[in-house]
């Protein structure tokens, strides 16, 4: 747990990513408990580590990880594999639950049914790369990032601190935090655009 949270060795695999999505679809379609058990085995400990980074106690991290997985079961019918990878969807559930519990409020989000929602009228070119494949590409791009960029991205996602607090923590100027983040985000995004 000291140092970085992401593992350099675990190879990201599109087959796995597709499998996770299929399990969620199976839960939605037929309340498939075996699929849920497999999904739980993979994501439960990962959500726990996420919660632990914010909370610092095993007990509450465990509780919130269990609750996140409960919500995965309950909300499985809302999962759309065309819109997000399984890992992305579970991340947003964990993030929202953390904000709900630690800040006692809801994460403010766009309402897809909002009549004021402005939709891009230019049709997006056919998505050649699926969300699962994209998830793997992002994960690979993250691993490829230089250490100094990876650290700021990681702190952004795994700690409840602002960019100026990241600057204090790393003892670097705020401008440096921002430029490293911008570089990292640029690479993560061009990685995606390069293939789609």
């Amino acid at each position: 747990m000291n140092g970085t949270a992401t593992s350099r060795r675990a190879p990201a695999n599109p087959e796995d990513a597709r499998q996770y999505a299929d399990w969620i679809v199976a839960i939605a379609a037929s309340r498939d408990k075996a699929a849920f058990a497999r999904l739980f085995a993979h994501f439960g400990p990962r959500v726990k580590v996420y919660m632990f980074r914010f909370i610092g106690t095993q007990e509450m991290a465990e509780e919130l990880a269990q609750e996140t997985m409960m919500q995965v079961w309950r909300k499985a019918h809302l999962f759309d594999p065309q819109k997000a990878a399984a890992s992305t969807w579970i991340f947003t559930i964990a993030r929202n639950l953390r904000i709900d519990r630690l800040r006692q409020r809801k994460h403010i989000e766009v309402d897809d049914a909002d009549p004021t929602l402005i939709v891009d009228e230019t049709p997006i070119a056919d998505e050649i790369v699926s969300q699962s494949e994209q998830a793997v590409l992002v994960q690979e791009a993250l691993v490829e990032l230089p250490q100094d960029q990876r650290v700021v991205v990681e702190l952004s996602f795994f700690e409840d601190i602002s960019h100026s607090e990241i600057a204090e923590r790393l003892n670097i100027p705020l401008g440096t935090v921002k430029s490293r983040l911008r570089l990292a985000l640029g690479k993560l995004r061009t990685g995606l655009e390069g293939v789609s």
């Binding site: 949270a5 675990a10 990513a17 996420y50 997000a84 890992s87 992305t88 969300q131 992002v138 985000l185």
Partner: peptide, 9 residues
Amino acid sequence: ACGGAMLNG
């Protein structure tokens, strides 16, 4: 999706 990749990693 980056958050998801971080979580998965």
